[in-house]
């Protein structure tokens, strides 16, 4: 379980996160939705250690992660799949995948990569090719695979649907939901595409201007037209 308590971040005069508190339970997907500039990406980058918070904390299964370096946070089981194309085009598919677990003993690493190749057969077929020969959806699979290589207990996904066809988005999000259940992962999913995100999530959190404005079950939030009009602009 990931527990965020009163996390605040500011960039100069801009308060990007203002005392954000939330809980991400294991075994399900928690979706954070909100318009551009709501602070969703800042939240993810702060949890992964890329941005230093002013105050507040985040604990993964009772162990504090805030204030630590990104490479230590990922080693403690919290993996972020950042926004956009986060695979490295110059490296092969296999190299991109193994990157996620280089710090683990090689036997464990090989076992995990075999498991991931079973899950994504297309990656196994293309393991020796440069990763920029993959399609957008396949690259997102690779990014997810790389995050799984560190054997995480908590997975953060920042806008995985960005630039993908609707059909692929649905596939990826269903896969994320399946991963959460089967591997008992705490998954925090950030999306602008609210409708699709809420369909795979158990809990929905709406953010606006750096604060959490509403927490509810995914069905509740999806059904609330007023909420949608006010904060999601759609």
């Amino acid at each position: 379980m990931l527990e965020v308590k009163q996390l605040s971040v500011s960039f100069g005069a801009v308060q990007a996160l203002d005392s954000v508190s939330l809980v991400v339970p294991r075994g399900e997907v928690t979706a954070v939705i909100g318009a551009n500039g709501a602070g969703k990406s800042t939240l993810m980058r702060t949890l992964a250690g890329l941005v230093k918070p002013q105050s507040g904390s985040a604990e993964l299964d009772g162990v504090q992660v805030t204030g630590r370096a990104p490479e230590d946070i990922v080693r403690s089981g919290l993996a972020l799949i950042p926004e956009g194309r986060s695979t490295i085009p110059e490296l092969t598919v296999e190299e991109n995948l193994h990157l996620g677990g280089l710090w683990r003993p090689s036997a464990e690493r090989k076992a995990t990569s075999a498991e991931i190749y079973d899950m994504f057969p297309v990656l196994a077929e293309r393991r020796r090719m440069r990763s920029d020969t993959l399609s957008g959806g396949e690259r997102q699979q690779l990014a997810i695979g790389r995050a799984l290589m560190c054997d995480p207990t908590c997975l953060l996904l920042d806008e995985p649907s960005l630039g993908l066809a609707p059909l692929i988005v649905t596939q990826i999000l269903q896969l994320v939901n399946q991963l959460a259940r089967e591997k008992n992962l705490a998954v925090l999913l950030v999306e602008q595409n609210a409708v699709t995100a809420l369909r795979v999530a158990t809990t929905g959190i709406i953010m606006n201007l750096g604060t959490v404005v509403r927490v509810g079950t995914a069905e509740e939030i999806a059904a609330d037209d007023e909420l949608r009009d006010a904060y999601l602009g759609s």
């Binding site: 992964a48 250690g49 890329l50 370096a69 990104p70 490479e71 990922v74 080693r75 993996a79 972020l80 950042p82 986060s86 695979t87 490295i88 110059e90 490296l91 190299e95 193994h98 990157l99 996620g100 677990g101 280089l102 710090w103 090689s106 790389r146 290589m149 560190c150």
Partner: peptide
């Protein structure tokens, strides 16, 4: 692994950090 870590750090330091390197 050391060589791969070095190449990844050069190509994309942020992704390398997020991978635990």
């Amino acid at each position: 692994s050391l060589g791969l870590s070095m190449r990844a750090s050069a190509f994309n330091p942020e992704v390398a950090k997020l991978s635990g390197i």
